[in-house]
Design a protein around this nucleic acid. Structure first.
Lengths: 262, 262
DNA sequence: ACAAAAGTGTTCCAGATACACCCATGC
DNA sequence: GCATGGGTGTATCTGGAACACTTTTGT
């Protein structure tokens, strides 16, 4: 019964080193082939998918915990990560009963008698973060409760456990709003890209098509792109220019927040 | 040593009935005499001020806990209340040491030996909410740790304990942003008001003066106000019209969010 | 009559939208 | 030579900002 021993150890570790009642969930966005992707985990021996998440160490800042969790799931560092909402409904975890949840995780047997653990006994408040990451550089890695971690097309996300579909919905809304007053793409695209690729990213996030000429004007007006040479040409088309974000300008725009308070 | 007994009882109640590690703090905005006000509490027998806060019952939704806490502090019900950020730095409570904090609360003696309580032992994650309330209808009520609860002019807020000044700053930023895409005032003004009073509210929140004519146009364009008769006239001036919010339209605008997700 | 507050309309500019043609390449 | 995708400029609309005079009333 190795699984049970392992589970016990994990629960002990959680109770000893992590804050009770608080968890966090990550909506990790990636972009590939004109599709917005979300990273999901599949529970061990089940067909149920959830968002990757994590817990907060007792000696760790909340934001740091989110960065750490994201790093563990994607192998990436230094990425865009931002809190968007905190979820605290009593029944947010009980989309299925605790028993059924464990069942679906293939942990029912292993977890028997461990239910008085703080980890299972209390519902959690969960802080939702959303992240933008470079799809191609990511190494999706399952955690101890999952045996699969992979990208899903945003339009094809299945019904998830708990309130995780709602989390994606809210994260996407936040991302869309952000688009209207800040540049996006540095963490979602490879180092260099064509204008068409960038436009395609915007269209995917917004869920509607944009006028090419107007998009050029707007994005160039931001003064955040650097134009490089032409891309070695591909089938049946004129060679497009490659662009790169001017990092210092990009970050300046990200920090252009009204910081004044009367 | 009655205080000690009471404290013990409170701690026991907290451990038994409330979520550990999670608290919430309220930035309660009111408006009076052209000034934006914030509700603050003063710790027992000390000169230190903090934001009112609360904890989440184990069987209670996070938002409900915020409403309940606000009701306890202001006597008001049915008000505007919204989450704006969750604060989770390890050292956010240690603006002063725990000992010093208790000292300043006049609780050092009473709390001796109770420090292994979960309530003191762990730092908290705190969910920040901001509220807009009708100044005149409010009955500020201290909680068990405070012996004073009163309104402060936003410009005169002193240094607060913990990260509470930062919380006010962020709440105000959120409120200002909200102003740009939603009407504000229903919960901050009396039932009827003049256009000048409403403008004054906007100016106070934004921290800058607005053009009267443009303000009229914009706000009327929202189609959210109902014009009533003229106010019985006051010193040396033309009698101004009174207005009232059209509630159904007001709430429609509040809910006018892009709810679509691709 | 004059001081103080209230009410109202027009001009101007900037940012967003709508829209069409030419060029380079691969087949 | 034609189909595909890339690159560019101009006219129009709309929302926001700037701005001045007249009316009422109390002193």
């Amino acid at each position: 019964m190795e699984l049970r021993g392992k589970l016990q150890e994990i629960l002990r570790d959680i109770e000893e080193n992590y804050l009770p009642s608080v968890s966090l969930d990550l909506v990790v966005f990636g972009f590939h082939e004109s599709q917005l992707k979300v990273l999901l985990l599949r529970f061990k021996d089940s067909n149920d998918w959830i968002l990757p998440g994590g817990r907060v160490r007792k000696d760790e800042n909340l934001d740091e915990a989110a960065y750490r969790s994201l790093r563990e799931r994607t192998g990436l560092d230094r990425l865009f990560l931002q809190q968007f909402h905190t979820f605290g409904n009593v029944n947010r975890m009980t989309y299925f009963s605790r028993e059924e949840t464990l069942e679906r995780m293939g942990l029912a047997e292993a977890a028997a008698g461990l239910w008085d653990s703080t980890y299972w006994a209390n519902r959690d408040i969960s802080v939702g973060y959303y992240a933008l990451v470079d799809f191609t550089g990511t190494v999706p890695t399952p955690d101890f409760m999952a045996d699969e971690c992979r990208w899903w097309d945003i339009a094809e996300v299945p019904h998830l456990l708990f309130d995780h579909n709602e989390m994606i919905r809210l994260a996407l809304r936040t991302l869309r709003r952000q688009l209207s007053y800040q540049p996006v793409g540095y963490n979602l695209l490879p180092e260099t890209f064509t204008m068409t690729e960038l436009q395609s990213l915007y269209e995917t996030i917004l869920g509607r098509s944009l006028d090419r000429r107007n998009f050029y004007k707007q994005i160039l007006h931001y003064d955040v792109l650097e134009r490089l040479g032409k891309r070695p040409t591909i089938p049946a088309s004129k060679a497009p220019y490659l662009y790169r974000f001017r990092k210092e300008r990009y970050e300046q725009l990200l920090n252009d927040e009204d910081l004044s308070v009367g």
